[in-house]
Design a protein around this nucleic acid. Structure first.
Lengths: 150, 150
DNA sequence: AATAAATGTCAACAAGGCTGACATAAATTT
DNA sequence: AAATTTATGTCAGCCTTGTTGACATTTATT
């Protein structure tokens, strides 16, 4: 059993998400808000249904978090042009600012970890991550343009 | 910003932990129980304090989960020999069995992802993970013998 | 006109984090 | 020997973020 991979995966993810926790708390937000901010910043104009597929949570859970982000002016919703039933999600200027603050420590941590690897290190790590994702979701990774370096 | 690493890290971890969720639910357990089972299987005889350091949760949170594991016969506690204040944690035969069941799908997922990488792939990934961990906790990784392949 | 889809909302519940306060036994320090 | 510290446990209550089920609204599709 690859016990070492399991364990180190746990520690790495623990410290990766831990970076933003203190900052989030000050805003009265949690990790769920951070995840929404990440995807809304990554692909502005994403419909609610896509976010539900990505986060794999229920719409009720998402609604609660999203409402707070909208109410506090971090995210705005616009009616879709081609399909007017959709609410397309956009980060506001304020939302982009918060996301960048939250990401600053994560970014340094990632860049330091990659800098210590051999030349092809980043590609290898990204390929590992893709390999860990459910095959049926790999197309989604492409659509989100997360696999462009591969 | 290494947005791709952030996103793929999220998806990979989501599907990694998701593997065990269905199985855990049948036992009435959750991810917290799984994490305890992992570390108790990895290093039998671990004192409670070490587990608290690792999981970075409060003793009250751990106590709840640990109590259920002990009550259902998956984990047993023995008084430390050198320091009789300590309660050393051991997985029972039943606990080892459950852990192996929970790990089966995670193991295949990890092995498949690594098999698709170049020869040095596993080492690169492990080194990345270590690089993501807080420097002050890297000694802990060594003590847990999670860095032996590096 | 009927149905389906995208979204929102209300209500109730559970897991698993948290804090604070207090208790006990064993080790260590004074 | 006494005082203090350490390792652990426990009670009580709170918060975030997940869950299910039911129902409403608007817009698209059939």
């Amino acid at each position: 059993m690859p016990l070492d991979v399991m364990g180190l995966f746990f520690f790495a993810y623990r410290d990766f998400v831990g970076d933003a926790d203190a900052l989030l708390e000050r805003q009265g937000f949690g990790r769920a808000h951070h995840r929404v901010l990440y995807f809304v910043n990554l692909r502005p104009g994403m419909p609610v249904a896509d976010l539900l597929d990505i986060l794999k949570i229920t719409k009720q859970s998402l609604a609660r978090v999203l409402r707070q982000l909208v109410d506090h002016g971090y995210v705005e919703q616009k009616t879709g042009e081609t399909d007017r039933r959709q609410r397309l999600l956009y980060a506001t200027e304020k939302g982009r600012g918060l996301f960048e603050t939250l990401s600053a420590t994560q970014t340094s941590r990632i860049e330091a970890a990659i800098a210590a690897l051999p030349p092809e290190g980043k590609r290898t790590v990204l390929r590992f991550f893709v390999g860990m994702v459910e095959p049926e979701d790999r197309g989604l990774l492409d659509r989100l343009k997360l696999t462009e370096e591969l």
